[in-house]
């Protein structure tokens, strides 16, 4: 805990970090508590369709009269869940592959680098579209495909960190003292690699949210009746002539979620950088 408190304090002391932290907490609360305080998100009441914001429907209703506050909360929950799972999975897999490649060296290392380059040779959204189209839409496939897109970034960073650690004196010392390889990796490499990876992960949360929303917007992400910020924007866009409200509520929520997590991620990056530590006194 002693390590994390100064970082949190640094984030709070930077003006943009504070905005980011507050936004992230608000979005989290909205995602967690929103559904509790609202009517069923999938309840159809066609007679109430295209209503503007009111006390009963804080964000209005959509083309089927469904309550947009509940649906936006549900979509926010999906966006956060997906982005956190994707980032955690790609961090984990990337760290394992990257550390292994860095430790192994030689042709294994080269092979892994080439594989990462090949995956990154595809524009991200295009590769995701192709994979989802071939393997089918659905929650699991969405998670797996987007995770695949982000593994190279984490893998490259884990590998670079491993390479720079490999010849540090304390590693040599442990090796000379006879520490088994598995323990060496577990005790020294993973903890040292993890710091930068966590920063990268937090910077990637808004990127994943954007990609998920984009894929859901074109119907290849989260499937109905489950709401997603992207599909809400899509539904609103289809009925733009009748009402602006469905688009506006979900688009602003999406923008605030990505803005908050970006500001938070950048503040975390600066706070974790020892060179910048203690800048905001």
């Amino acid at each position: 805990m002693d390590v994390y408190l100064p970082i949190l304090r640094d984030i709070w002391r930077s003006p943009t970090g504070r905005i980011g932290l507050v936004l992230v907490i608000l979005i989290l609360l909205f995602a967690i508590l929103g559904p509790v305080f609202s009517v069923a998100p999938n309840k159809i009441a066609v007679q109430d369709r295209f209503q503007g914001p009111s006390l009963q429907h804080l964000l209005g209703t959509d083309n089927l009269g469904r309550d947009l506050f509940s649906r936006t909360a549900q979509g926010t929950r999906a966006a956060l869940a997906i982005s956190l799972i994707v980032v955690a999975l790609s961090l984990l897999i990337g760290a394992i592959i990257g550390v292994a490649a860095g430790m192994a060296g030689g042709w294994i290392d080269r092979g892994v680098i080439v594989l990462f380059d090949i995956i990154s040779a595809y524009p991200a959204v295009i590769l995701a579209m192709g994979l989802i189209a071939l393997y089918g839409v659905g929650f699991t496939n969405l998670l797996l495909v987007v995770t695949l897109l982000f593994i190279p970034q984490f893998g490259r960073m884990a590998r670079a960190q491993t390479l720079s650690l490999r010849h540090q004196p304390f590693i040599d010392a442990e090796r000379v003292l006879g520490l088994p390889m598995a323990k060496l990796v577990w005790r020294h490499f993973l903890p040292n690699v993890l710091g930068p990876l966590i920063v990268l992960a937090s910077m990637n949360v808004p990127v994943v949210i954007t990609i998920e929303a984009g894929l859901s917007f074109i119907g290849l992400g989260v499937q109905p009746p489950q709401a997603s910020l992207g599909s809400l924007i899509r539904d609103g866009y289809v009925f733009l002539n009748q009402s602006w409200w469905p688009t506006i509520g979900s688009a602003i929520t999406l923008a605030l979620a990505t803005l908050g997590s970006t500001l938070f991620g950048e503040a975390l990056r600066d706070a974790a950088d020892p060179k910048l530590r203690g800048r905001h006194k």
């Binding site: 943009t16 808004p206 954007t210 929303a213 984009g214 917007f217 924007i233 866009y237 733009l240 602006w244 688009t247 688009a251 999406l254 923008a255 990505t258 803005l259 970006t262 500001l263």
Partner: peptide
């Protein structure tokens, strides 16, 4: 930061709304 974090398709929809429609 606001420019960076707003997804392109959201910008596209609002540009279409305002300047075309």
């Amino acid at each position: 930061v606001a420019f960076i974090t707003t997804p392109a398709f959201v910008v596209a929809i609002f540009l279409l709304l305002i300047f075309s429609l």
